[in-house]
Write a protein that binds this DNA or RNA. Structure first.
Lengths: 142, 142
DNA sequence: GTAACTGCAAAACGTTTGCACCGTT
DNA sequence: AACGGTGCAAACGTTTTGCAGTTAC
């Protein structure tokens, strides 16, 4: 059910407009199989819209994040954040390589969130969570 | 067996010196029960050494990170990175209140790390991980 | 027409670096 | 005395913001 079209429709329902740049940004995120930095995404958008600005990319990412359609991954280290589409509620986490910075998707969430939430329900209302594994990928463990 | 003294001794063995600022930085990290930002840590060091500079804090954190004594956590927040001492065995995670910013300790790690590591051992060598729950504490859920 | 969106430029922010001096060893 | 450490200031890269003009609706 999720698709570029459905994402743009969701945005429209929230009062956001359909612009060529935004369309392209969503398409690129949709087609990517790994989280992208704002800069990388910008480069890719420029292939079609040479005059698009980096701030437009940032603004769209923020907008998509607010709409709950994009999640942001902050790597350990001085590198920049990476963004990826949140496909249909189904959430997952990442193995982050401290060598090359690549993020590999973990197939499933290893945390029993319902149980954890219930466990602390009286003192704390849990809205979301973050989990990341750090280490070195095949190529970087030397 | 880990202690402020043993940490400073480990640093000494690696050729690093024992300076008052470094000593205080390690002490503060040792006493803290939650990961600290460089800025927060800086504030706390300034209580004793009013003229300590923020870059000294960064340099010491980097040095401790290289020595494998401090881990860096860069989750969710667009905020700055947070640092904590890597304490033998007693690792835990936090409930972070999005209202007041307070961090409440989770008694145990909800992740079966050994199993996860074994699961990806062939493509990835896991060195550490980060996990955080976000939400609102008693006082802030209005 | 109105409000959202864009590009540009500049600012803000966390973090890093060059340098001269200081302190530990 | 040597060399690691420090403070200062300036640089850096990422991200945010103000503004004026443009575009989708």
């Amino acid at each position: 059910m999720p698709s570029v079209e459905s994402i743009l429709r969701q945005l429209k329902d929230k009062g956001y407009r359909r612009t060529p740049q935004r369309e392209r940004i969503v398409e690129i995120l949709w087609e990517s199989d790994e989280p992208l930095t704002a800069r990388t995404l910008h480069e890719k958008v420029k292939a079609v819209f040479p005059h698009v600005s980096l701030d437009t990319v940032y603004r769209n990412l923020e907008l998509l994040r607010e709409a709950g359609l994009v999640s942001q991954i902050n790597l350990q280290s001085r590198e920049s954040a990476r963004f990826e589409l949140q496909k249909e509620g189904e959430h997952h986490h990442h193995l982050v390589c401290l060598g090359c910075g690549d993020a590999i998707c973990l197939p499933a969430c290893p945390v029993d969130l319902d149980q954890l939430c219930a466990q602390h329900a009286d003192e704390f209302t849990v809205t979301n969570h973050a989990f990341e594994l750090y280490g070195y990928c095949k190529d970087c463990r030397n």
